[in-house]
Nucleic acid binder design. Structure first.
Lengths: 234, 234
DNA sequence: CGCAAGATTGAGGTCGTTCAAATAAAGTGG
DNA sequence: CCACTTTATTTGAACGACCTCAATCTTGCG
């Protein structure tokens, strides 16, 4: 039971964060020739829960969050999507969650029929999609392990290591998302996220930048020890 | 932080539960002609984390659990698999989790090359596999919502409704798994599982059979109200 | 019958939440 | 460029849900 706010609106961050210049801004080559690109502004919705799933997407620049809400407003961000990630593939006709840009982002749009073609079998693109699906599932399972078993500190440590891996970052890890986003991703509150980050900083394991959107990993081994094992973080 | 036992062995249940005669025992037709069947005894391992993923499986009778362990023994059961479910499809070459039969079970074994054929595209079976993948992902996401947001009582209520739906059960729901299995699935302890079930029983929402492996839903509406919304339980 | 394993129940402790306040950044308009 | 507002984040104190430890009860089995 957490983060149950009456006004869902108030839960949406609305500050202006620069993604540009961070490692996350590194664009990704558009694999198949098909697909148009689309630009998204900060907090702009790409698709919403319940909407007809007529397309799916691949992140080119920026970062997105996908989430679901409980009736009372509790939110679970199931994943953050960085350049190269594919999102929005649905089993049914409707999107089962909402996707929003965290900062300025661009995505490639694929028509759903590409997916149907893939399921029926169509060579390379099909293989890429199935691989993307399997990777999503793998990540979802890792995340369940985190949500079901880990303590707050372990969650935060795992999250930082995971972002660092996905960001191909050595030491400096960009966190384009707000504390609220992180909290709703890890099943914590913003206060606990903040406290855990402070705790890691106090121990000298990490360093939090002034703007709060960058982390420097000072002691990766210690961070790994904090992460509670298994999670295949590097 | 929960259920961290030093001896992982002691966590494995070993009683004798009858699956036979419950709704869960209902067999499922083997869709593709290929695939040999395999029988599994209670708690028998189908495949283990780290093992080469040379095959994947479809449940015909019984029920299986798939789980991952943290180094200290904490366990997360990511899913229970009932007749008709496909499990063991992996992105990489190795199984990322362990699968065990909960009670006597039978599965169909598919060689991995079928999967590769499917990814490359091979008509009907390909479509079924991709659909299975997408359904797994959907379930994983539902489960993340549960793990990340819901209270103990909400988790239990959701779980019962979900089992009832998957079991095509009207009122009487079979729970072939132990309390420990349920606890490790929902991110709780056995004590909390037990207490929550008792709480629901005390309110007259459900009834727990003497053998503890069957639940009767007395007031589905109340149970749904308890479940915390969204979860697409019926 | 008596033992072993699973499940339930009770008492007390802890981690993370809730509520509240302080601090810090980022706009905004002059 | 600076006061002022707004929003994000951090920090503190107290509470509560769930866990831990321990005892009891139940069921199944030799």
């Amino acid at each position: 039971m957490q983060t149950a706010l009456a006004a869902t609106v108030s839960r949406r961050p609305a500050n202006g964060a620069a993604l540009r210049g961070t490692p996350l801004a590194r664009p990704v080559p558009a694999t198949p020739a098909m697909g148009v690109t689309r630009r998204l502004g900060k907090d702009q919705e790409l698709f919403a829960e319940g909407e007809h799933a007529g397309a799916f997407y691949k992140v080119v620049t920026g970062a997105l969050r996908t989430y679901r809400l409980l009736e009372d407003g509790r939110r679970q961000i199931d994943a953050f999507h960085l350049p190269g990630d594919i999102l929005g593939i649905e089993a049914g006709k409707e999107h089962r969650f909402t996707a929003e840009a965290i900062g300025e982002s661009t995505v490639l749009v694929y028509r759903r029929c590409s997916l149907e073609a893939a399921a029926a079998g169509e060579g390379d693109f099909a293989r890429e999609l199935v691989a993307a699906l399997m990777r999503s599932l793998e990540r979802a399972r890792d995340h369940m392990l985190l949500l079901g078993c880990k303590s707050a500190l372990e969650k935060i440590a795992t999250f930082i290591l995971d972002m660092s891996r996905r960001d191909h970052a050595e030491e400096v890890v960009a966190l384009p998302m707000s504390r609220l986003d992180i909290a709703d991703h890890l099943g914590l509150t913003i206060e606990t996220v903040s406290r855990s980050l402070s705790a890691l900083e106090r121990r000298g394991t990490i360093e939090v930048s002034a703007q709060r959107r960058t982390i420097v990993i000072r002691d990766r081994a210690a961070l790994r020890r904090c992460s509670g094992g298994t999670g295949d973080v590097m």
